[in-house]
Amino acid sequence: MSSYTFDEWYVIRLARTISDREVVFHGFASPCAQVAMHVAKRTHAPNMMLIEGAMYAINPDPPFIPPTSNDSSLKRGAAYSMRFEEFFDAAIRGDVDRMFVSGGQIDMYGNTNVTAVGPLERPKVKLGGGGGGCNISATIKQLTLWTTRHRSGRTIVAECDFITDIGHRTPAGTREELDYTGGGPQCLVSELGVFDYDSQGRMRLQELWPDVTVEQVREATGFEFAVADEVIPVAPPTQAELDVLRAIDPLGVRRGEFDPREMEREFDLVGAGV
């Protein structure tokens, strides 16, 4: 019987947030989202338009995923390389369907903080920064939020110390009130569960990994979140998805996103539709 590890399943679940014929973008410094896009393109979403995070290359066929997102290997075989402004113009005028967004903090409305934890003048932790997310989170049609650090208890919080990228509503108003044309976060995939957002833009638990309980999710979350009437287990990966993932990421750069204890989560591939 073959087995697979949690990082593999997690990336495949991220990939399944992508639909065919979507235009999809991931930011730099996010190998899980990057690998997920290549998995989707090679399995259920062959006609998606994949835009590589820091290369702005369309539908490349990289020989491997390197540990930096600005490397020429990531534009190999690309149909076209967009200029920086071609990509960002497409994103702000609403031509990009989906972006992957993460953060050091994510609040109940899906706002994210990648700027600073603690007081802004003297932060406890100065995070790297948001790239282009501040503007394009307002206009890209759907956002897939993701984090591999939910369990820390510091990531999914009631309020972000700083809002870098916009979710469904901030103290300044809702997306509608702010004239934002994008739809905001569609889902959040964490290493504990999968969430969607209710009509008020609040996070709601939809799916659980089989080795996680609702109680564990509650302990790790900084606010009371809604729970769907029926919480379903995350669907297992197929052999085909695992094969594609292992081929595209032979260096295992996706693993760098996880706390070492998550890497001990291992599963048997039983009865999966191959």
Partner: peptide, 24 residues
């Protein structure tokens, strides 16, 4: 005044930037 300073997931946060920002 950069949009990001860091070494991505591979090598992590930018050490001198982080220290200078945190100490003002």
């Amino acid at each position: 005044e950069e949009s990001y300073v860091g070494f991505e997931q591979d090598l992590g946060l930018a050490p001198a930037y982080r220290r200078a920002a945190e100490t003002g």
